[in-house]
Design a binder for these strands. Sequence first.
DNA 1: GCGGATTGTGAAAACGTTTTAAATGCATCG
DNA 2: CGATGCATTTAAAACGTTTTCACAATCCGC
Lengths: 356, 356
Amino acid sequence: MRSVSHSLADTPKAPPADAPLKAAKPTLRTIAELTGFAVTTVSRALSNAPQISAETRRRVHQVASEIGYLPDRAAQRLKTGRTNVISVLLDPHEEILGYGTSLMLGIARALRDTPFHLIVTPSFAATSNVDAVRHIVRNGMADGIIFSRTEPFDPRVRLLLEQGFPFVAHGRTEFSTPHPYVDYDNFTFAYEATRRLIARGRRKPTIILPPKRMTFSQHLQHGFMTAVREAGVAYEIPDDIDLDCPVDQIRDFVSRRAGLPDAPDGFVCGGEVSALATITGMSDRGLTLGNEYDIVAKQTSKLLVNIQPKVETIYEDLVDTGFRMGTTLLAAIGGETDPGKLQTLLEPTIDFPDRA
Amino acid sequence: MRSVSHSLADTPKAPPADAPLKAAKPTLRTIAELTGFAVTTVSRALSNAPQISAETRRRVHQVASEIGYLPDRAAQRLKTGRTNVISVLLDPHEEILGYGTSLMLGIARALRDTPFHLIVTPSFAATSNVDAVRHIVRNGMADGIIFSRTEPFDPRVRLLLEQGFPFVAHGRTEFSTPHPYVDYDNFTFAYEATRRLIARGRRKPTIILPPKRMTFSQHLQHGFMTAVREAGVAYEIPDDIDLDCPVDQIRDFVSRRAGLPDAPDGFVCGGEVSALATITGMSDRGLTLGNEYDIVAKQTSKLLVNIQPKVETIYEDLVDTGFRMGTTLLAAIGGETDPGKLQTLLEPTIDFPDRA
DNA sequence: GCGGATTGTGAAAACGTTTTAAATGCATCG
DNA sequence: CGATGCATTTAAAACGTTTTCACAATCCGC
């Protein structure tokens, strides 16, 4: 594990009996010895410091890549205090198919070719993960934080703003201080979805909302209500059920409601799973999609809705969302403070993008 | 960022004008000064070295927890060479709902209260992620690796075995050298699922398999065939479709096949999504579940199948799988070599476990 | 009371980097 | 020609741990 220094072996010390197969990991010193420069110079050359002569820089870079040098993360971190780590708070919630995985894939894509690593920090506390945030900030476990499902006055956002710690939220808040976010335009989604239902002749749309404490729940409701009022149709917003409820509960609710008078005939579904629950619940009553009722759902994967072409969909690209969160966070860490460059609102799209 | 050393300030150096609000991060030296012991002793006391007196140990621990000391990961890593990092290879595949997230949640749970962090390493190369493995091993980016979807002679397993690098695979291989794994008994799953179909009176079961290159595809096929042969019924294994295919393709296949003579009347589905695709494909032909055909599916989440009670299910607990992979990897890193303790085969269960 | 265990503690080196401050060579200049 | 500047390079000190080795007590048997 340790390289043989060039001091002469004075005493016949026991040679390392274990596997010396793996070549000693190259370090700055290795390059220094190979090129004849000092460690300092090598370090400077690799970081492209201006005072190093072009020729030296070239030479050092060449040798470095020849021996496959990679700076030691621990040493860098120890010296500079920068962790080169992005922490993503993992939510145990899963209404949206593969939500976490897609997001992470996007983030990882943005982190590619940067020195940053992505570490996942699950929040075990059932209630909130503000403790996890506090821990990361206080102990310098990362250079930036990513999380989702914001609330209007999200305590995590508040904490991070107070501390001046770089982060990107998936979702907006109502703090007056601007902060980095990437969000989906749920107002427009709900607005357009509802309009489509009405355009199809539905006269009593409904929408199953996420838990009310979340910001985007209000955005959805607002979009829904705007379309409903414009058209002057009846509507209904169920109060005792939300998208985080167990899916069979949603199905049962839909089925029960469909058996009562004045049942809704159009559903805006915030996720594919709730769309399916709706279909099943309705079919329990003998009602079939496209005949007695319609659905417009938010689609986040090719998986599900593609097999039910009768469900109209509006698309949200979670991988892209993750990617933008990644680049935004990198910008924030890099010192960017212009809110205009740190805030993204993604528009709903009709088509599923073909990913290269 | 730096603590004031107790040397007297000689020149009126510019005081740190920026935020000095955050108390200097406590280090071993802080504790040393507070207790009067040397850094060495503090370090020893905290690691519960035997030669430290009980009283000293107590005192040091007390002070440490009072000031909220947490060892610096970078320094530890630099000194010891251990990274305290577990790398999990993220697959972009998603047939199973929330597969990645569930697994990670379980792993994270196992890593709780250990010094290990979970970092996700996506494999961008479309073909294989053996390069990612090589990179991690060669550059010492982690102390252990977790990955899934093994092949009989998985190149990742081969590499890691060669290098003696700790890992746990989700899935078995056919190497003669035993290695750590956690796997689901897909043979039994397919066997029982098929038997259930037959018990329901179905006379021509079929199964949609994962891509054949994967080990567990063969296990599934074996279980299926065993049940079929025992009962002496007809069967069918589609050749030009697999579980990794786009879901609408699966639906179309099912629908097309149902229109031809001698169509299957029982489906073993390896995932919830393919079960749904099957239902939809069949209903395109006017065939309904429970009447003209039956399905037994593998259920990995509460999400989907709960809304279609007519789909019989057999359960696979992915969070538990992740948890066991985590503990197994920790054991392997800890030096455990007894294969009996590093290999787990999880049995299919009927009920969805209630998670505390 | 004296060698030799035994027990508890400490000084210093090391891990691989970055950074501060200084050194070197060398041309320019008054 | 000594001083001044500029362009390059370097030695050495840190960052916070762990570890090797040595040191100071205390204790034991004689």
